[in-house]
Nucleic acid binder design. Structure first.
Length: 429
RNA sequence: GGAGAGGUGGCCGAGCGGUCGAAGGCGCGCGCUUGGAAAGCGCGUAUGCCCGAAAGGGCAUCGCAGGUUCAAAUCCUGUCCUCUCCGCCA
């Protein structure tokens, strides 16, 4: 969400931002509603001010004078009511528009319609060449006796999986390594709720928009808010301090959330159906930074969380590239987004494993996340986030890149301490 | 799941339906005092919105949402949350 007063002062920036993001947004409608809103507020407040002032006198008045006052007060009551009623739909539409209003992309966001316009920023490592016919991760896992997709499908439907034996330990090792790495980088690990109230999803700007991608937990008794399963712990972690006014001395907050993540993947039928690339439930360690509203600091944080993610991929000895997401692909909320993509031999391509976004105060405004600066001024925080590691998707790259001719998997050195020192996972068949 | 108690400012804690954004205390900030500190004294100390160049003025907010009333922190209803006891349980 953006500051309505700022939109009022510079509507062209919003128009241009929406245009670049290929998101239709009617700024003029919003401005017209804003005029209406302020007019009605003025009328309502004037009536209420008179009502309060006269009301205070009424008990000291006698007889006709009191009757006269009471008559006037009834009129004022109706006036207030009338203006309040008139204001409600105006405010409601403003609120809806503000939630939909796209955050203008930063100038360095590459212009383009979709992910085909994403721009490679840098590349690390070389995709491996094999002197044998490489297998894909599903086949590799089968040989390790490390996966059961058939029974998982029967149990939980498509896009489900069971990791088994050493493969399950491998997943845990990767997650544990990520937690260790991110702790070393000064982040505080949080295990957070994955069942959250709707406002947290609205606050992080997933809603409105991502409802169809999100599992809903209907509440059969209460009328107000259903709960939802988060698609990332970013939601829980970023919303943790919602509604608070933080002390600038406590900033920046560097959190790493670990959680399972749940995504319905509606509308992706037939896409990435094989293997562990696109699944309904996965595990992720996510880094979130909450800091003051300072452009340079947020750029520095962004560089740092990208570096953290790159460090992870390097520890896993995976070739990857960093992509700057095009304006039409970046989404409504972020002002800038990098995708990190690891090489996945079976795809013959890089596949997305990390997304590093910065939002300025877009999320913070939505969830009323603020801080008091050195001068005592209250301002909205700037937020950012990035993956540290997400499994099982990264296992695709890990297994396929490090496979050996006999179907065994070489374990990168950084993982070995979390796998009892093992250097290789041997196939069972 | 059953029974009960409670939700007021950064914290504790008052609050006859009107003059209550809210006593008092603590904490915090500034000043006085002091060789320095403590104590003491004085002043200040919520957020949002509207009008205004500003100074300043106004409106709202006492978990949340409704209702009664000219007027609600105060009365009524619902709801959420917290706590205590019983039961059940990973």
């Amino acid at each position: 969400m953006l500051d309505l007063a700022a939109i009022r002062e510079n509507p062209d920036a919003i128009r241009e931002g929406a245009r670049r993001k290929r998101i239709a947004f009617d700024v003029d409608r919003l401005l017209a509603l804003d005029e209406d809103r302020r007019r009605l507020i003025r009328l309502q407040e004037e009536a209420r001010a008179e009502q309060k002032a006269l009301g205070r006198q009424v008990k000291d008045l006698q007889g006709d004078a009191q009757q006269l006052a009471l008559t006037r007060l009834k009129v004022l009551k109706d006036d207030v009511l009338r203006h309040t009623d008139a204001l409600a739909p105006v405010q409601a539409e403003i609120d809806a528009l503000l939630l939909a209003c796209p955050n203008p992309p930063d100038p360095d966001v590459p212009d383009g319609d979709d992910d085909k316009a994403n721009v490679e920023v840098r590349r690390h490592g070389e995709p491996p060449t094999f002197d044998f016919e490489p297998l894909d991760h599903v086949e590799l896992l089968r040989r390790l006796d490390g996966v059961d997709i058939e029974r998982a499908g029967r149990l939980a439907g498509s896009r489900s999986y069971v990791l088994k034996g050493e493969a399950a330990f491998l997943e845990q090792a990767v997650l544990r390594l990520a937690m260790d790495v991110i702790r070393d980088r000064g982040f505080t690990l949080l295990t957070v709720p994955v069942v959250v109230k709707e406002w947290a999803l609205r606050g992080t700007a997933y809603f409105p928009g991502a409802e169809e991608q999100t599992y809903k937990i209907a509440n059969p008794t209460a009328e107000d808010e259903d709960s939802w399963l988060v698609g990332t712990s970013e939601v829980s972690v970023t919303a943790l301090h919602a509604g608070e006014i933080l002390d600038v001395k406590d900033l920046p907050l560097r959190y790493a959330g670990w959680s399972p993540c749940f995504r319905r993947e509606a509308g992706t039928y037939g896409k990435d159906t094989r293997g562990l690339y696109r699944v309904h439930q996965f595990n992720k360690v996510e880094q979130v930074v909450i800091d003051v509203a300072d452009e340079q600091k947020t750029l520095d944080h962004h560089a740092a969380i990208v570096a953290n993610a790159e460090h992870m991929l390097q520890l896993l000895e995976l070739p990857y590239r960093v992509m700057a997401t095009a304006s039409g692909d970046i989404g409504r909320a972020a002002t800038f987004k990098y995708d990190l993509e690891a090489w996945m031999p079976s795809r013959g391509a890089y596949g997305e494993t990390h997304t590093a976004s910065r939002f300025r105060d877009y999320q913070a405004r939505r969830m009323d996340l603020r801080y008091r600066d050195e001068d005592g001024r209250v301002r909205h925080c700037y937020t950012l986030n990035n993956t540290v590691i997400a499994t099982p998707r990264v296992l695709i790259a890990l297994l396929e890149v490090h496979q050996q001719k006999d179907g065994s998997i070489r374990i990168p050195a950084a993982l070995r301490p979390h796998l009892g020192g093992r250097e290789v996972l041997e196939p069972k068949s």
